[in-house]
Design a protein around this nucleic acid. Sequence first.
DNA 1: CGTTAGTTTGACGGCACTCAAAAGTTGTGG
DNA 2: CCACAACTTTTGAGTGCCGTCAAACTAACG
Lengths: 251, 251
Amino acid sequence: MAVEGESITANAPVFRQACGPCALRGWCWSPQLDECDISRVHAIVRRSGSLPAGNHLFRTNDPFTAIHAVRSGCIKTYSSDQCGHEYVHGFHLVGELLGFDAVYPETHQFNAQLLEDTLVCTIPYRDIADLGRQLPGLESHLLTLVSREFSHHLMLARGCGATERVTVFLCDIERRLRRTQLSNFEFDLPMSREDIASYSRCSPETLSRILSKLQHSRIIAVDRRHFRFLDVSRLNRIAQGEKPPMYGRPD
Amino acid sequence: MAVEGESITANAPVFRQACGPCALRGWCWSPQLDECDISRVHAIVRRSGSLPAGNHLFRTNDPFTAIHAVRSGCIKTYSSDQCGHEYVHGFHLVGELLGFDAVYPETHQFNAQLLEDTLVCTIPYRDIADLGRQLPGLESHLLTLVSREFSHHLMLARGCGATERVTVFLCDIERRLRRTQLSNFEFDLPMSREDIASYSRCSPETLSRILSKLQHSRIIAVDRRHFRFLDVSRLNRIAQGEKPPMYGRPD
DNA sequence: CGTTAGTTTGACGGCACTCAAAAGTTGTGG
DNA sequence: CCACAACTTTTGAGTGCCGTCAAACTAACG
């Protein structure tokens, strides 16, 4: 995987072809990186073929070998206790990174499973360390990404009620999907009700009831996995703890 | 150049005086750093005088200027919503770092308040970036520290029952205090019941009931803020989800 | 000793989990 | 195209954990 990249300029067309449609460019890596830097990054990035849904990218206790970037599709990370119960920790959409759960103990803490057929970019970790010496901003940018995700999870964890946590999830996924999808306020989510419920720390039944109530309140419209966000500002207020969401409004 | 080398040697005594009693040495920073590297680090570290309990080290929306290390005492980080309710995110003990909550948006997400009279070391962030160029392992070590804390918080968040979350806190604080305190299995915790309850995401009343039950089960002994851990292995099993903790055992 | 703040204990109620079943959706084969 | 099965999602009923309110208790201080 340390790469052929004989000359950086020779790789530039490869970069354009690979990352033009990928939505990673200028986002997944630091905005401060110029095109030359990004070419250098891509000299060591290995691009996967299409991986089928259901496959695992890595599993708990796998040795830490690489950071991954989602080129298309969606990946969920989860862990399971000795009783076999699963806890979903996050969903990684197009343009997002995963694999940092193994930075510390050098083995993965979580499982990573593909929710759709997915393309990923794989960056071997040793090469990242090398790159870090060449690109001074790289490691601090990785620190930034992890720190941001950390803060976000702490904010999610604070929610006391299930409704609050579910709406936090909805607001977050809406914001992230809007970045890469053309449609505004209307998306097909790749994950099941069970996954959303696990991530939001409630039962699938409770999630279903909450979605029904939000729909009756004309805040969202749900059909199967297709979500339309009718009143994002109201959704945000509920997510931030607005007390009585005026459920059960008669029609 | 020779001049630079000389100045590093000149700082070595300062380092020994400052960090011998500090417990930071060889832990807070990477174990791979040799004494010369650490001297270089300490050339830019500013050591505070004693800060009185109750003071804030920083507050939400303060600009990000520095990373802090706890030299003695204890600091809690928390945020509050618009209703004025506080959410404790963590406790930072001797030898631990804080301030990473501001790496991403460049302003602090949390408040940091001293629970005791406290000494801190302050490392200006711009100097860290400079240091990162001189010490290749530094930034990746910071990434390691943040990643470790992240994984730990995700594990704490998974607990479904209040008992599980409280025992996770107890196991964690016991392990961390044992690192720096001479006494084994017997500590004075610096934080109030209300802080512990907020961190464990339950009410102070529920926390009190759980501690009482653990005490009646002869797993811990609590007197005010003094905790004795009588059966750590049992505590760990409860923290990991062992179902019936056999509470209410008659005496 | 009185006051105050922090903690513990008790009673009650609501939210959410569990159990259970119905309704809708997807996939397969006839 | 339909029938049937397997699965996901939704809806309903009952129960338990935990949050809220209230009061008693303890330590710390003047």
